[in-house]
Amino acid sequence: MSGRRWTSLHLLLLLLAMALGLCLGGDQVSSPIEIWSALAGGGSPDGEQPVERDILFYIRIPRVFAGALVGASLALAGVLMQGLFRNPLASPGVLGATAGGAFGAVLAVALRLETLAGLAVPGAAVAGTWFALFVVYALAAGRSRLSVLHLILCGVAVNTLFSAGTSLILTLSTDRYEISSKIIHWLTGALTNRGWEHVLLILPFFGLTLPLSLFLARDLNLLLTGEESAWSLGANLDRLKRRVLLLSALLTGGAVAVAGMVGFVGLVAPHILRLIQGPDHRKLLASAPLFGGTFLILCDLVSQRLIPPEEVQLGIITSLIGGPFFLFLLARERRPQ
């Protein structure tokens, strides 16, 4: 199939997932007819706004959009990272980006910054992500050439540091139940009560990054055949690495800010896509956001409907689905052809 057909197929699947999210989200199931009448604005004969309409407009629609954008951002960041590291096992977590974001958010929660400004916690998450990647970049770029191995090693170190910081804050907050439960909420990732302000928070990050990423497709393809080889065909490697890092920071920052730490999407989504449509980044960069969005909306639905009216944390669901699937892929790949 051509790249365009794949993109259309993925778009269709995303729209289906969004429709499912609207019908099945929350603790009650709505029929498509109910949804349609609420969307069309047909109130009851006595002129009152039906409560379904509010649920739809202020809870379900923003939640579905937020989910789509978070999934899209993580999947796109995953494609970029795996391309840069020439390793299908890389993900935004490798460079400490998610750990940095989580640390920022957790610190803000512990300091009760959300009482000062509504978006203090997401803002701190973005700052944490950027700070982590900045530290990694500054350490790795100290050499004359930006070496991928060096980046990974710095990422491991930064990851460890931020995770330790997060654990420390969590330990110090155990006697304050309210704060520690919020922290755990962040660390496992969720889309509960995400409204339009969250959609507006992540939208510029994603909207800015997607078109810029598409420009990197060919250079990322070349990089997969080796650095020297890529250089000989005109790829500007240092510039490419800087751009991939910057774009991944924007994407991961936005995603962590809205949903906390949602694991495995950035790892599994690109991997699945590569298996079904090949490693060409011109196709991957277009379809990964659509596929990631679909995947996250469906995971979010499972998290809402598994044991209603309780919600299971989204990050637990993505890991429960993504982890075994990933193991399956690895086992399948290793089988001799």
Binding site: N87, P88, N221, T225, G226, G278, D280
Partner: peptide, 20 residues
């Protein structure tokens, strides 16, 4: 350049490599 190391970890098709 025809590089010394032509090993690839990613499943490009032959024609995709040549297209590069």
């Amino acid at each position: 350049l025809v590089p010394q190391d032509t090993h690839l970890d990613f499943s490009f098709r032959v024609e995709e490599v040549v297209l590069m």
